[in-house]
Design a protein around this nucleic acid. Structure first.
Length: 489
RNA sequence: GGCCCCAUCGUCUAGAGGCCUAGGACACCACCCUCUCAAGGUGGCGACACGGGUUCGAAUCCCGUUGGGGCUGCCA
């Protein structure tokens, strides 16, 4: 595998084009927080004319599975985030990390340790801070299948992390413990692989989540021990949190980008919303197309405070993008949701009927996943009548029976076109001394099964006269059967 | 416990000493529009965590307090 020559000096990162990387560990799905990190790296690279590298951190054998990697690539593609190099897989570069480990050992920067977690804990006095105590530092432990390699961290001095978002962050070496860099099975931990690869791939700017900030001095120390004295510039992004201000967790939230896709969120919308978390375009604008986003993006302007991942606002952004779509595109994007697992017999779907009402549906849904529920009455044999809607629009309305009867008679002969149906319904309203809003209610419930939905007259036109009349008659019959006194009328 | 980070409306944010009686957006409320629901329009509610400094002047700078979070794994 070809390796990229290392940058000669650290200052070069400012004069030559930046190189950034997105380095997820494969977990089977792409976390929205990771997607945000990928987006910020990507925007930074595109804004600066730099290079965006994709690197899969699959040093843990349990995570090194092809399908997990494919999922990341697919989702990144869906989001429109293309990479210039990679994907490099750490599982294919193990020899590099092994060499590095050998060198560190030979030079005395690392040592073998045979302590188990239990042994370390047992040595820790009650109440004292937990952590490794450097027990094996000078015990001369030989390599066995039971030993792991630890980095010998300095006892004095400090490491400073230069962060574009947070400024200089100082870490006192005395607070750093000797971390494991190679497991007993010989595989590297992420610190080692990370240090080796960032140097080898000449990464100039490391943009990632704030949760990685505490591990940064260790990586820097590792790089130094490996003889790599260039220091990348860091930018630790604020975490994405839940309503309790805690890191998004798989347990309680939908955090996979794929889930949002499946719910009918548009990639552009999710991307736009993600960009708004921790950053804001200049001016009072939030809905900004990608290319403009790239022009405007500045890592230095990213916020420090954690951001709440707000589904309500995401939905709003998505609805805005949905409405902005050309109708033909909206129809095309909706089709998968209409065809996959629909609430009606699949063969009853008539795309041309959907097209007729699509513009009306478009401005009433926040996600594509809501589309079927908005038009189901058009493709169902008979609509499911919502009990509350029936009670409100028919049972509790004195004129309901009469209006339904009139509608049956009137709709039999009127011209079957939205405006004409509108006019006819207006006439019905007048005849019963009602406002149009009131008169349309029982008709809407009878035909669509609900008290809310797309504009009624266009819906009736799309449904067709025959089905409309059939449903009106059924409703009228049901109404009659529910009357306490006379059954017919 | 230790180390580290953070702190403007409920939420996302604008604000880089005077332009701030703190702006926008989401949510919420009211009204308008209207065949329901949306969309749209108008208006409303609503924040600089607290305490000290520095300064003629602080949301903006410094210190402290409080609060929140992250890390503390042979996960990344």
């Amino acid at each position: 595998m070809p390796t990229v020559p290392a940058l000669p000096t650290s200052s070069l990162s400012f004069v030559s084009a930046p190189r950034v990387r997105f380095a997820p560990a494969p977990t089977g799905f792409l976390h929205v927080g990771s997607a945000r990190a990928a987006l910020f790296n990507w925007m930074f690279a595109r804004h600066t004319g730099g290079t965006f590298v994709l690197r899969i951190e699959d040093t843990d054998p349990a995570r090194s599975r092809d399908e997990l990697v494919e999922g990341i690539e697919r989702t990144l593609h869906w989001l429109g985030l293309d990479w210039d190099e990679g994907p490099f897989r750490q599982s294919a570069r193990m020899h590099l990390y092994a060499e590095a480990a050998d060198r560190l050992l030979a030079e005395g920067s690392a040592y073998w340790c045979d302590c188990t977690r239990e042994a370390v804990d047992a040595r820790t006095p009650a109440g004292a801070p937990p952590g490794y105590d450097g027990f094996c530092r000078d015990r001369g432990v030989e390599r066995t299948p039971e030993t792991a390699l630890r980095l010998r961290t300095p006892d004095e001095g400090e490491t400073v992390v230069h962060d574009l978002i947070r400024g200089d962050v100082h870490f006192d070496h005395r607070t750093l413990e000797d971390v494991v860099i190679q497991r007993r099975d010989g595989t590297p931990t992420f610190l080692l692989a990370n240090a080796v690869d960032d140097a080898d791939m000449a990464i100039s700017h490391v943009i990632r989540g704030e949760d990685l900030l505490p591990s940064t001095p260790k990586v820097l120390l590792l790089r130094q021990a490996l003889g790599n004295h260039e220091v990348p510039v860091f930018a630790h992004l604020p975490l994405l949190v839940d309503e309790k201000r805690q890191k998004l967790s798989k347990r309680r939230h939908a955090i996979a980008v794929e889930e949002y896709r499946e719910q009918g969120y548009l990639a552009e919308a999710l991307r736009n919303y993600l960009a708004l978390l921790g950053w804001a375009p200049p001016g009072d604008r939030e809905i900004v197309p990608l290319d403009e986003m790239v022009d405007l993006f500045e890592v230095e302007a990213v916020n420090k405070a954690p951001a709440f991942f707000d589904l309500t606002k995401l939905a709003h952004v998505n609805a805005t993008y949905l409405r902005a779509l050309p109708v033909a595109t909206f129809v095309r994007e909706s089709l998968p949701w209409l065809m996959e697992d629909p609430p009606w017999p699949p063969e009853r779907l008539d795309p041309s009927v959907f097209e007729a009402v699509a513009p009306l549906v478009q401005e009433r849904v926040q996600t594509l996943g809501e589309v079927p529920g908005m038009v189901d009455f058009l493709f169902l044999e008979a609509p499911d009548i919502d009990p509350d809607s029936w009670a409100k629009g028919v049972t509790r309305m004195a004129e309901a029976g009469a209006v339904l009867g009139d509608a049956i008679a009137t709709f039999e002969s009127c011209h079957w076109e939205a405006e004409a149906i509108h006019q006819a319904t207006l006439d019905i309203a007048v005849r019963h001394g009602l406002k149009l809003a009131k008169a349309q209610a029982p008709i809407r419930v009878a035909v669509t099964g609900r008290s809310v939905g797309p504009p009624l007259f266009e819906s009736l036109q799309a449904l067709g006269r025959a089905s409309t009349l059939e449903r009106l008659r059924a409703a009228r019959a049901r109404w009659a059967s529910e009357q306490p006194t006379s059954a017919s009328q």
